[in-house]
C-alpha cells in the first residue's frame, strides 16, 4: 500500500506562450504509515505535486499510483470521489473554503457527499471535532465565520479529516498561525501519524520537518534535488543553502560549533539530545580558553 509518483511531468497552460514546466520527471514513493516532508522555495512545484496525488491535476506525462492503481486511467477517473476519500488534501489557508451556516454542516460536507447515513455523518463530525479539541456542543451551531483564525483552520481541516482518509496531505498547514497554534497543529498531525495515518506535509520550516518527518524531499524548479531521511538531507548544508531552504536552527548551531573545533555530531534534531551533545563537547574542552 503506497502512493507512487512515476516520472510525472506537469505543464501549466500547455501550448500557450506562457507554458510553464512546473514539474519535471518526478519520481517518488510514499509508503503507508510514513511521514514525508516536502520543502522547497516558493514556486518550486510543491503545491502542484501534491495536487496530483488525489487527481485534481492530471500529469502531462507519467502516472500516479494509489495502492497500485493508476488513478488517471478511465475506470479510475470515474471513481474519483472514492479516491478523494482515501487521499485527503488540505490546501494552504483552508479556512477560505468554509461556506456553510454552521460548523457542523461545514464539516459534514465531505462525508455527506460520500453518501453516508446521517447517523454516521453525525458520529464522524463529533469524533473529528473532539480530535481537534473543538467542543462539539459548544461549536456545532456556530457560524464558521465568527470563529477565530485558528479555530477556522481547525474546522477546515476537520472537514477533510471527517472523510477519514488513509493518506493525509497538508499544504503548509501552519502558515499564518501564531507560535502556539503552530505547535498545537503539529502535535495534532504527529498524533494522527502515530495512529497510523500516512502524512505528507509541505512546510517552509526546516525545524518542523526535522522534528516530525521520517523522510523528506527538497524541490527546486520542479525537480527533486535531495531526498532521504532528514539526517541524510541535512548533511548537505551547502546545497541546501544554494537551493535557498537552509537547515534547521539546531543543525545550524551544531555546524557552527563544529566549525569552531568542537567535536559534535551534526545530525541531531531534538533539543534535549543537542543539549547533551553540547555539554559533552564542552566538558571535553574544559580548560581550553580559546572560546
Amino acid at each position: 500500500m503506497s502512493l507512487e509518483v512515476k516520472h510525472v511531468t506537469y505543464i501549466y497552460q500547455k501550448g500557450s506562450p506562457a507554458e510553464n514546466h512546473a514539474l519535471q520527471d518526478i519520481c517518488l514513493k510514499i509508503d503507508e504509515g510514513e511521514f514525508l516532508g516536502i520543502v522547497g522555495h516558493t514556486g518550486s512545484g510543491k503545491s502542484t505535486l501534491i495536487q496530483h496525488l488525489n487527481g485534481l491535476l492530471k500529469p502531462s506525462e507519467g502516472e500516479i499510483l494509489v495502492d497500485g492503481v493508476d488513478i488517471n486511467q478511465k475506470e479510475s477517473r470515474a471513481k474519483l470521489k472514492e479516491l478523494r476519500m482515501q487521499v485527503g488534501l488540505v490546501f494552504q489557508y483552508p479556512e477560505y473554503q468554509l461556506f456553510e451556516e454552521t460548523v457542523e454542516n461545514d464539516i459534514a460536507f465531505g462525508p455527506r457527499s460520500l453518501g453516508l447515513s446521517e447517523q454516521e455523518i453525525k458520529e464522524r463530525v463529533q469524533h473529528t471535532m473532539e480530535l481537534l479539541n473543538l467542543d462539539y456542543e459548544n461549536f456545532r451551531n456556530k457560524s464558521p465565520f465568527e470563529l477565530s483564525g485558528g479555530e477556522k483552520r481547525k474546522v477546515a481541516i476537520a472537514g477533510v479529516l471527517a472523510m477519514q482518509p488513509k493518506y493525509l496531505i497538508l499544504d503548509e498547514p501552519t502558515a499564518g498561525l501564531d507560535p502556539r497554534g503552530r505547535q498545537e497543529f503539529l502535535e495534532l498531525i504527529a498524533m494522527l501519524h502515530r495512529q497510523g495515518m500516512t502524512i505528507v506535509m509541505v512546510s517552509h520550516s526546516m525545524d518542523d520537518i526535522a522534528r516530525y518527518a521520517q523522510k523528506m524531499i527538497v524541490m527546486e524548479h520542479g525537480q527533486i534535488k535531495l531526498s532521504g531521511t532528514p539526517q541524510e538531507v541535512f548533511s548537505h548544508p551547502v546545497e541546501l543553502e544554494q537551493i535557498g531552504v537552509g537547515v534547521p536552527t539546531l543543525t545550524k548551531l551544531l555546524l557552527r560549533l563544529k566549525e569552531r573545533g568542537f567535536h559534535v555530531r551534526t545530525d541531531l534534531f531534538n533539543v534535549n539530545e543537542v543539549k547533551k551533545e553540547i555539554l559533552t563537547a564542552l566538558s571535553e574542552r574544559k580548560g581550553d580558553t580559546t572560546c
Binding site: G88, Y96, V160
Partner: peptide, 13 residues
C-alpha cells in the same frame, strides 16, 4: 479555480 479544487478535494462535484 483554487476554491473549486479545494471543494472537489472534499468530494464536491
Amino acid at each position: 479555480e483554487k476554491i473549486m479544487k479545494a471543494q472537489a478535494a472534499r468530494g464536491a462535484d
